[in-house]
């Protein structure tokens, strides 16, 4: 991913900052600028999530995505935050300890790197709480 494209969402990725619709009360992470329920009636503001959540579903990836070859096997999961929204993330830890419904907390981690000498991407992964 290009540097500006990553940089633009840096705060959201580093600090789990998403958005919140003041009109209907729904929370969004990844952030959305348009509330899908209220659409143009919605009132969107930034919101920092606590990061506490639980595993909705997960997989152990053995055939890596491009740029993740050195990390296999790694656990990819959908986590539901306590405020409601769901996100795709990695769970740091042993694959055999994972289970659906497991409580997790956020950690700041390296996600990847753009080529051999490119920018390092950081973001939020999760660990068993």
């Amino acid at each position: 991913m290009s540097v500006p494209r990553f940089w633009r969402k840096q705060i959201a990725r580093y600090n789990l900052v998403g958005t919140h619709c003041k009109q209907c009360g729904e929370y969004f992470y990844p952030p959305r600028n348009m509330c899908p329920s209220c659409r143009r009636e919605g009132e969107i503001e930034d919101f920092k999530f606590s990061g506490q959540g639980e595993v909705v579903t997960y997989t152990v990836i053995h055939a890596a995505a491009e740029g993740f070859e050195g990390q296999t096997p790694y656990v990819l999961a959908i986590v539901q935050l306590e405020e409601g929204p769901r996100l795709t993330t990695q769970i740091v830890g042993d694959a055999k300890d994972m289970s659906i419904g497991m409580k997790v907390s956020p950690v700041f981690r390296k996600l990847g790197q753009s080529g051999d000498r490119g920018m390092i991407y950081y973001g939020t992964k999760f660990v068993p709480a």
């Binding site: 991913m1 494209r5 990553f6 969402k9 990844p30 909705v56 579903t57 997960y58 997989t59 990836i61 055939a63 890596a64 995505a65 491009e66 740029g67 993740f68 990390q71 790694y74 990819l76 999961a77 959908i78 996100l87 795709t88 993330t89 990695q90 659906i100 996600l111 990847g112 991407y121 973001g123």
Partner: peptide
């Protein structure tokens, strides 16, 4: 193929297409 998923919020976390369907299968 992974570009059919959300590059900014799935792909960047290491999601692959088999990985996404594997999460459907697990559930």
């Amino acid at each position: 193929l992974a570009a059919a998923a959300d590059r900014e919020w799935e792909g960047i976390m290491g999601a692959t297409f088999p990985g996404l369907y594997a999460m459907i299968a697990r559930m």
